[in-house]
Amino acid sequence: MKIKPIIPDRLESISEDAVKGRSLWHDARRRLFQNKAAVISMVILGIIVVLAILAPYLSPWPYDDPDWGYDFPGPPNAELKHWFGTDGNGRDLFVRTLYGARISLMVGILATSVSLLIGVTYGATAGFIGGRVDNIMMRIVDILYSLPFMFFVILLMVFFGRNIFLIFIALGAVEWLTMARIVRGQTLSVKKKEFIEAAHATGVSTRKIITRHIIPNVLGPVIVYMTLTIPMVILTESFLSFLGLGVQEPLTSWGVLISEGAKQMESAPWLLIFPAIFLAITLFCFNFIGDGLRDALDPKDR
């Protein structure tokens, strides 16, 4: 009793390697690369990252010393290679914007990693164990959710001083709550699938069930949420900087630059415009990539 396979018969003559299956990751990657907005965003983001890394080599000006021979602040001037002008202390804005990019991106990525680490562990544990443990763990998350987190971050800053690592930790510690909820929900739904039961029926160990069956199936939404968390964190950091709680001079971030620029918006608009453009573009890019990933990984339109 032979059945007719979906795949046409002529493939029977082709070797096995030729019928390599398309995994869901493979499909997702293909769909992501078909999404123009996401691809353009990735390219732009790549360029910003490269610029940030190469910042010291791209301009003759340092990020922390003033150019005594130019206005304080001075408008953009291509001859002097002050492409974005200089700030109120005479420092080159182009270099400072790129150094700001370093800090902003780093805060975004590191804080998100912190949230990822805590959130995935916490959420997967709660979801997998389930029952009473899950109940208690998620009530704790609910309680933390209801605390005014900005207040919490500000308190931390005030007590421990302005420290960049504190910013990472504070932001990550706040963002993990949503991550934990997402991971828990996913784990719960995957845990109920029949293929998990099939694994139990075969005698697969719990550790293998988590690593082989649950985690790969939970990863998709986690990646999407991660991409959407990075811009959120960058924005929060900017907000903190706006309140004067961001990174310390002479280091800078986009938030700090924007907040300084906003003070001199009328007399020296370039101080606001350039960092704001960078920030906006970056946020857009992350959001487009996140959307693209969500569409690509969404199993519904498979």
Partner: peptide
């Protein structure tokens, strides 16, 4: 020879 394919196929 379908051994390397995935269930959704």
């Amino acid at each position: 020879l379908m051994i390397n394919r995935y269930p959704h196929e």
